[in-house]
Design a protein around this nucleic acid. Structure first.
Lengths: 143, 143
DNA sequence: CTCATTGCAAATACTTTGCAATGGC
DNA sequence: GCCATTGCAAAGTATTTGCAATGAG
């Protein structure tokens, strides 16, 4: 019976196949990213990791994020002007709405916007390599 | 005969009206922003300013950018992961396409995308306070 | 004259890096 | 056993801030 191509948890074999050694620290970080389902920054990942393994260092968090990003296992975002925040790269591409009061992030996707972006780039003589669409918003006051 | 509401050059009176003192340094920076028509970062503004007035300091550039931003005279952008880059805030709102090879920035505006963004935020129960749409792209190879 | 603004140096926030020790595979 | 990876401390980049001197209005 065939395995699904990429079960959410199984980054380990993918990374191993890419020549990345799975250390205790990396496993801890990977678990945090998989379990959290949110968009923590390096310091927050470090805090959560420390709770599990107090010997982990912030350098290792930063280095691991770089490796995971290069291997495509995570995405890095720079919301507003704060530190980079990370998320697991399992689902399809999506954009972000950031609640400016709470810092919460809501993911969304609009095929129409994606298509319009392509169209615009094309008109300008360019090919999109990546893009970033962020809506900084505030909860509507129900009245 | 009525003056246009905001001649490109005349930020000075607007700022003065907002209680901002127009110093030699600020005038220099304002001129650089007006003349450049590009999206320089603080260091680049500092370099250009030094050419005109070597006594200016980088702190003053940063402090001035903050004041100008608060008064709405400029916009601050954080393209990619680099330093903040600034542009004069005269025209209408627009988004940016960044040439990833040259760093050049092309401005564009799509009413349809703007409308779709509003629609999405509304559906999620939010009101957009600001947004950021950046296309990182590469020139199409003509073939 | 008054108080906003400046230059300088030191501080801060986030991130990267050199190096010797450790530990996957 | 080899070499990728680690922790630590130090360095690096972008930006902000305390303070005494200066200068705009």
């Amino acid at each position: 019976m065939a395995e699904p191509a990429q079960p959410a948890q199984d980054y380990e074999s993918l990374l191993r196949a890419a020549g990345v050694r799975i250390t205790r620290q990396r496993r801890t970080i990977l678990t945090i990213l998989t379990d959290g389902g949110d968009h923590p920054d390096a310091l927050e990942i470090f805090r959560r990791a420390c709770a599990v393994d107090p010997s982990i260092s912030l350098s290792t968090v930063y280095r691991t994020m770089k490796v995971l990003e290069e291997k495509g296992a995570i995405h890095r975002h720079a919301f507003g002007d704060g530190p980079s925040r990370f998320e697991q790269a399992d689902g399809a591409h999506h954009d972000h709405l950031i609640d400016i009061d709470s810092g919460d992030v809501i993911e969304f996707r609009s095929e129409r916007i994606e298509a319009l972006q392509e169209e615009i780039a094309k008109e300008l003589g360019y090919e999109i390599v990546s893009h970033r669409l962020e809506l900084y918003a505030r909860k509507r006051r129900p009245r």
